[in-house]
């Protein structure tokens, strides 16, 4: 007998996290765009000192974490919609998680390799 079991008792958390990260990212991007609009970056030292600022660096890193979290929920939603073989879906989800963890380490490395300005 093929019985469909549902009722995983989660889902709200991810749905809410997707929206919270979206709002945080939007605020960050608008602030960044406003900054660049007021004073465009002319050269390398200016660009480097912008991200070398400790607060900016932390904000940018948090933005990227929010981006990766948001991306995880979105991509998993797509996999849940279209990929129906459980094994393949799990494999793809693991692939997405591993790539996002890799990106997290990479972004930390990029931002903190700068040294302090």
């Amino acid at each position: 007998m093929k019985r469909i079991v549902t009722g995983a008792h989660y889902g709200l958390r991810d749905w809410l996290a997707q929206r919270v990260t979206a709002v945080i990212m939007t605020i960050f991007v608008l602030c960044l765009a406003g900054t660049l609009l007021v004073s465009p970056l002319p050269d390398y030292p200016a660009w480097k000192s912008l991200l070398g600022n400790q607060w900016m660096r932390i904000a940018f890193f948090l933005f990227l974490i929010g981006l990766f979290w948001h991306a995880w929920i979105g991509i998993r939603n797509i996999l849940m919609d279209y990929v129906h073989a459980t094994g393949i879906r799990l494999a793809l989800q693991i692939g997405v998680i591993v790539s996002l963890l890799f990106y997290t380490v990479w972004s930390a490395e990029i931002l903190w390799a700068l040294g302090s300005a």
């Binding site: 549902t6 009722g7 995983a8 008792h9 989660y10 889902g11 709200l12 749905w15 849940m80 919609d81």
Partner: peptide, 11 residues
């Protein structure tokens, strides 16, 4: 409780 599920409601 019955609806709190990534498939049942959150599709």
């Amino acid at each position: 409780d019955n609806l709190e599920d990534p498939y049942r409601l959150f599709r």
